[in-house]
């Protein structure tokens, strides 16, 4: 396919509303995820995205069984609850960090899949639904207008909150105990971060599916850290990286007809390798 043909094909697809919706939501979700991913990576909670995504899958299965008109009514509260339990538990819980994430993750995934099989949606395709929910192959392309507006609203809220509370996020990320000692209400901010993370993950499921959400959180932050060292630079670079990878991934999947979620992750990987090379070259200088 020559260059002119690619532009013509891209222009052809961009005239379709569902492609426009996918690009808008994809960019916002990737931006929100990449900002929060910096916090998670630095706090060594990279795997929490995966754990919460699996919890969201289990919640979606329950919502489907209970015939919810809008699955987010159940997915969001349950994911928020588990996010608070994981992030706000602190050091007093008996089952710590990675073990708790692993338990919740596999437990929710197994229960969700059992529910889908025991109570299959009427007239539906269980394998297709599970495949799409886990890998996000077509869900970003089949968004309704209401879902788009919800994603836009939540995305903006996440970005605005991050910008407004940047200093507190910084303090919480690097030294929560010192932040608490200075009088900052770390418990409240930890709970707020947990709620925001759960919200972003619930939205991101539409983009890349449950299994690939970690990529949206982790790759932008890790790639930025290859090149930049200050927190502010890493945050800005991660945001730009995340949005660019999402755009490239969505456009590539549209042109090549590949699954959207997996293509975005492939773009993330390519970007990470590029940034690693840049970081190595910068280090040599």
């Amino acid at each position: 396919m020559n260059t002119g043909g690619i532009w013509e094909t891209l222009g052809f697809y961009l005239s379709y509303p569902f492609v426009q919706y996918a690009l808008i939501v994809g960019v916002l979700v990737a931006l929100s995820a990449s900002l929060l991913g910096v916090v998670l990576v630095l706090r060594r909670l990279s795997y929490i995205g995966d754990g919460l995504a699996h919890v969201a899958f289990g919640a979606m299965a329950i919502a489907t069984v209970l015939n919810f008109s809008n699955n987010m009514l159940l997915v969001l509260p349950i994911t928020i609850l588990f996010s608070i339990l994981l992030l706000h538990g602190g050091r007093r819980v008996k089952i710590q960090g990675d073990a708790a994430i692993a338990m919740m993750s596999v437990g929710a995934l197994a229960i969700g899949y059992i529910l889908f099989n025991l109570f299959p949606p009427k007239g539906g395709n269980v394998s297709g639904d599970v495949c799409t929910t886990l890998f996000g192959s077509t869900s970003i392309l089949t968004l309704s207008q209401e879902e788009v507006w919800l994603s836009i609203g939540l995305g903006f809220v996440v970005v605005v909150l991050f910008v407004l509370f940047y200093n507190r996020v910084f303090a919480l990320t690097f030294d929560g105990e010192f932040a608490a000692a200075t009088g900052m209400r770390t418990g409240l901010y930890n709970a707020a971060v947990a709620v925001v993370i759960a919200t972003v993950i619930s939205l991101a499921m539409n983009l890349v599916g449950s299994l690939l959400i970690s990529a949206l959180l982790v790759f932008p932050a890790l790639s930025a850290m290859r090149v930049y060292k200050s927190f502010r630079s890493v945050v800005i670079c991660a945001a730009v990286f995340g949005v660019t990878a999402a755009l490239v991934g969505i456009v590539a999947s549209i042109l090549a007809g590949t699954p959207v979620g997996a293509t975005i992750v492939a773009a993330d990987i390519a970007g990470f390798l590029l940034f690693s090379l840049l970081g190595a070259l910068k280090g040599k200088k």
Binding site: P121, G123, D129, S139
Partner: peptide
């Protein structure tokens, strides 16, 4: 038409 081979995108919603 609802058919066992016909799927919906994302989690299934009721007809």
């Amino acid at each position: 038409f609802a058919d066992q081979n016909t799927g919906s995108a994302g989690a299934a919603t009721p007809d």
